[in-house]
């Protein structure tokens, strides 16, 4: 019953890889966007904000189909990337990572933005009077003080990425060993006769991973409060 089969291990390993790559690539972008939204006023700010949150409110199958249209082999961006960079997304694990990254992005950005907003701007001013140029104020004051929130965003994004289903299966299908993650594997197993116990094993694994992510994220949030109070 608790023996995890090689095929299941493959799905778990692939899920972890897809979610890790999605999170690591999305993080620098997420920090930049979070900082822009928290600290700058510019034309089109609410549009950017809406665009980031779109995957949260669109049906995932719509996001997946839009990805297929733009990043598929014949898609505008996908075709160009395949030809000039050799980077193929369609029906590859990289495509799963892209789908998961986009679906996880709003959840990843939110805690980052909130924690940057919570950093006292008067501290940033003080750093300026001590000779710190704006980018050094960011790297020595803003980012370290917002770090727990940044990590919480990464954990939350990772958890979302590992559970992503709709956009992934629409964009890159459900190919064992290439694009079959825990979620899509469970979906396949449920539809297979005698697949119930295997599905249950993956469900347990998925609950453990998600629970761990939530606990870790909560821990970072508590650290954030301590940091801001200087104890």
């Amino acid at each position: 019953m608790f023996e995890i089969s090689p095929a299941e291990w493959t799905a778990i390993e692939l899920s972890l890889r897809v979610a890790s790559v999605a999170t690591l690539v999305a993080t620098p972008l997420g920090i930049a966007v979070a900082w822009l939204l928290a600290r700058r006023d510019f034309w089109g700010k609410s549009l950017l904000d809406a665009l980031i949150h779109l995957p949260l409110v669109l049906p995932p199958v719509v996001t997946g189909y839009l990805l297929l249209l733009t990043f598929g082999r014949r898609g505008l961006i996908g075709g160009w990337l395949a030809e000039h960079v050799g980077l193929v997304f369609a029906f590859r694990w990289t495509g799963a990572a892209l789908a998961c990254g986009i679906m996880a992005f709003p959840l990843l950005v939110r805690p980052m933005r909130l924690s940057i907003e919570a950093v006292d701007r008067r501290l940033e001013q003080a750093a300026g009077t001590l000779g710190a140029a704006p980018w050094r104020v960011f790297s020595t004051i803003t980012l370290p003080l917002a770090l727990p929130g940044v990590l919480a965003g990464m954990v939350l994004g990772f958890a979302k990425a590992i559970g992503e289903f709709g956009a992934t299966i629409t964009f890159v299908s459900n190919i064992p060993g290439e694009t079959q993650t825990i979620s899509t594997a469970i979906y396949s197993l449920i539809q297979t006769p005698d697949g119930d116990t295997a599905a249950l094993r993956l469900v347990v694994v998925s609950v453990i991973i998600s629970l761990a992510a939530l606990v870790i994220s909560e821990w970072f949030a508590r650290r954030a409060v301590q940091r801001l109070h200087g104890n």
Binding site: L123, A126, G128, T129, G131
Partner: peptide
């Protein structure tokens, strides 16, 4: 501000808590 070389002591100190 960062190129002025003018020091500033604020009423609320503003030490960096981290």
């Amino acid at each position: 501000a960062h190129r002025r070389r003018i020091g500033y002591v604020f009423q609320d100190a503003r030490l960096f808590p981290h």
